[in-house]
């Protein structure tokens, strides 16, 4: 059974790229493009891994992550954070919020895949 990855991202071209990469790698991919109700969607769809963009309309990725970590059900959910803001400060913020992994855009497709495999496990 293929693993379920939930991509929360608002940039359509990036959504399409990631969906393509993951699908080819055997992931089941679902997407969501606003921040406001992202946590709700995660709770409902119960993914194996979440790819979370930082800059989202409505709510920032950090806030969503905070909420996930506060909830016992999603405390250990692997979360790969993607950000287009490549500054050190952003990395620290992500770590503090409890991101499992942090990658800056633009990313290498193969690195994303490797990271995801590592995070979800065999």
């Amino acid at each position: 059974m293929s693993k379920h990855a939930l991509l929360i991202e608002d940039e359509p071209n990036i959504i399409e790229a990631i969906r393509f990469i993951l699908s080819r790698d055997g992931w089941r991919v679902s997407t969501h493009d606003t921040g406001a109700d992202a946590a709700e969607v995660i709770a409902r769809t119960d993914p194996d891994i979440v790819i979370l963009d930082v800059m989202l309309p409505g709510r920032s990725g950090y806030e969503i992550l905070d909420e996930l970590r506060a909830d016992a059900a999603t405390r250990d959910l692997p979360v790969l954070m993607l950000t287009a803001k490549g500054q050190e400060r952003d990395r620290r913020l992500a770590e503090r919020a409890g991101a499992s992994r942090f990658m800056t855009k633009p990313f290498s497709n193969s690195e994303v895949l490797a990271a995801m495999r590592e995070m979800v496990g065999p």
């Binding site: 940039e11 990036i14 790229a17 990469i21 490549g86 855009k105």
Partner: peptide
């Protein structure tokens, strides 16, 4: 950075 990286992300990925 964000504005530059976003299109570049798509460009690189595709």
């Amino acid at each position: 950075s964000h504005e530059l990286r976003t299109p570049m992300t798509s460009i690189r990925a595709f």
